[in-house]
Computed example of a mutant assay.
Amino acid sequence: MFKPILPMLTVCLATQAWADGDHEPIGDAVKDLPIFDAHIHYKQPAWSEYSVASVIELMDKSGVAMGLVSSTPDEGTIMLWEYAPNRIVPELRPYHGSAGSSNWAKAEGMADYLEKRLNAYPHQGIGEFHIHRLDTSDAKLFRQIIKMARSRDIYLHVHAGTEPIRWLKSLDPRVKIIWAHAGLGTPAPEVYDLMAEFPDLLADTSLREYDILDRSGKLDLDWGKVIFAFPDRLMVGSDTWVNSQWDNYEAIIASNRAWLSVLPRDIAEQIAYKNAERVFGRTVSRSLLGTR
């Protein structure tokens, strides 16, 4: 169950600290932070509309120094990584051919496909993949996937509700997971509970930016509890799953800076890029902007 006392105290203490000037919100200085975008796709429909050079240019304009990229098919990720290896952290999405978000776990030869791609390229994760409806008969494949990830010390990037995350952890408690969209439709109190239950669970907040700030532009209370309890386990993201997201990329990153701007500098920096530095062993700096 949701445990409000400690996070409520954290939020209150944080508010008090802002008031006494020790931890003022970062405010307009948020524009100077480099961003690590932890949820990028470069899917095939984007290839003709957005060249690899134009994607990096959009990242530059938005102050996005580096990003975690998965694509349908994986060739999109590799094209971006080969063009800008210092800016792209590749991860392997299972979707290819007729295997998509709803049927990929049933696709023939999926384990062999993943193993082959992981051996050919330096993917730092497997995903983002969807578990729309948990089917425990898929356990054999997921045990294979977890074994692949653990042998390479990489993450699974999972788009799912709370039940599939708990199921994956039951298959192997040591599996490392980035929870895509922090559960997307999962209410913030349930996000808190799951992250409290699994101390190594990470989450990207793509598509949650308008939940995190309320309509008045203030930090939502329940999301504030999540953020102040787990500032070292959150990363921002854009989720360029359709071309319209690329069309609006600068605005999407700006909306993420908006909620980061109400946080103390140390927490804003953690979520904007420092957590990703630790997770992926990279140096994320604005000096990367304009480079490949």
Rank of each mutant, 00 (worst) to 15 (best):
A14Y: 07
R152K: 12
W167K: 00
L201W: 04
W81S: 00
T240C: 15
P45A: 05
R278V: 09
L171I: 09
A14K: 06
L213Q: 05
Y50M: 12
M110N: 08
P7R: 03
D200N: 13
A160Y: 04
S101A: 13
A53W: 14
G290P: 07
N275H: 04
R143S: 11
L80E: 01
K3M: 12
Y192L: 02
D214C: 08
K225P: 01
A99Q: 01
L168W: 02
I177R: 06
G67N: 03
R166G: 01
T162G: 10
P4L: 06
Y42W: 01
H159L: 12
T72L: 13
W104M: 09
A149M: 04
D32H: 12
W47K: 07
S287P: 08
V236T: 11
D200W: 08
L171D: 09
V89E: 06
P199S: 13
Y42C: 00
D220C: 11
H123Y: 15
L171V: 07
L68C: 05
Q270W: 06
D20W: 15
S101W: 13
A38L: 08
H23Y: 14
H41K: 11
I126N: 01
S244H: 14
P231V: 06
R286W: 09
Y249L: 05
E108K: 14
N86Q: 14
D204E: 15
G161E: 02
P25G: 04
N256F: 07
S170E: 10
A120F: 00
Y95W: 12
L92H: 02
G21C: 10
G281V: 08
I26M: 05
P164M: 07
E269W: 07
I35N: 02
D60M: 05
D60W: 05
F36G: 02
I146K: 04
H23M: 14
I131M: 08
E163I: 13
Q144C: 09
W259F: 14
E75W: 10
W179G: 00
I146V: 09
D20C: 12
A38D: 08
V55D: 06
D222P: 00
D193T: 10
K218D: 13
L114A: 03
I5V: 14
D239A: 10
A84G: 07
L260V: 05
D214A: 04
G125K: 03
N103M: 10
W104F: 14
A38C: 14
Y50W: 15
F280S: 07
D247C: 06
L184S: 11
Y95I: 04
F198N: 04
V191I: 15
S48R: 14
R278Q: 12
W223P: 00
